[in-house]
Each structure stands twice: as structure tokens, then as C-alpha cells.
Amino acid sequence: MSFLDSLSGSAAPEKPQCSRKACRAEARWQLQWNNPAVHSPERLKVWLACDQHREWLEDYLRVRGFFRQTVPFTPGPGEV
């Protein structure tokens, strides 16, 4: 945690977390999406999802025409 994080009271999570509001569960899925009105077709945005919220987040993106695909989330070398 940096000095500035300690002042704000917010520290980065130790493990990547689900993107669903108020969920602190560990991420298991990577939902890839883009907004065609804003992003070029090759640009993909990513939300992380836990098992419980995967379907909810996919549905949210599908209804808006943003959903592209879901793949298992594998943390990178700097993530636990």
C-alpha cells in the first residue's frame, strides 16, 4: 500500500475481485465487451466476475449489445 492509499483509506485488493457493485469475491471469469458507439471493434474492455455474478454481468452486457465473450480468468504474474 502506498502512502497516498493510506491517506485515502483505500488499498488495492490483494486478489482481483468481481466487478459487480459491492461484491468482494475473488474473480474467476473475464467478461470481454465493447460499446460499438464508443470503441473500435478490435478494442475489448474487461470486467471480472465471480461464479455468482457471471450470468448477471453477462446479461447486463447482452441487453445493451456490448457482450463479446467470457473466458476463464487467469491472474498474471503480478497478481495473486
Rank of each mutant, 00 (worst) to 15 (best):
N35W: 12
S19E: 13
T70D: 07
A37M: 02
G9S: 01
A22K: 14
H53R: 04
R43N: 08
C23A: 01
S40F: 10
L44E: 08
Q17S: 05
D5G: 08
A37R: 08
E79W: 08
E26L: 08
R54H: 07
P75N: 08
R28Y: 05
T70E: 01
Q17I: 02
L31M: 01
V80T: 13
L7K: 05
R24G: 07
P75H: 05
C23H: 00
G65K: 02
S10P: 00
V80E: 14
L31D: 01
R62D: 13
S40G: 11
E58M: 11
L48W: 06
A25N: 14
P75F: 05
Q52H: 10
S19Q: 13
E14V: 10
N35R: 14
K45Q: 15
R43S: 15
E58R: 09
W47I: 04
P41G: 06
V80S: 13
L48R: 03
R62A: 08
C50R: 03
L4F: 13
G65T: 05
Q17H: 05
S2K: 08
S8Y: 06
D51S: 01
V63R: 13
H39T: 14
Q17N: 10
L48N: 04
N35M: 06
T74W: 07
A12K: 10
T70S: 15
N34F: 14
R64N: 04
E14R: 15
K45S: 15
S2W: 07
L61G: 03
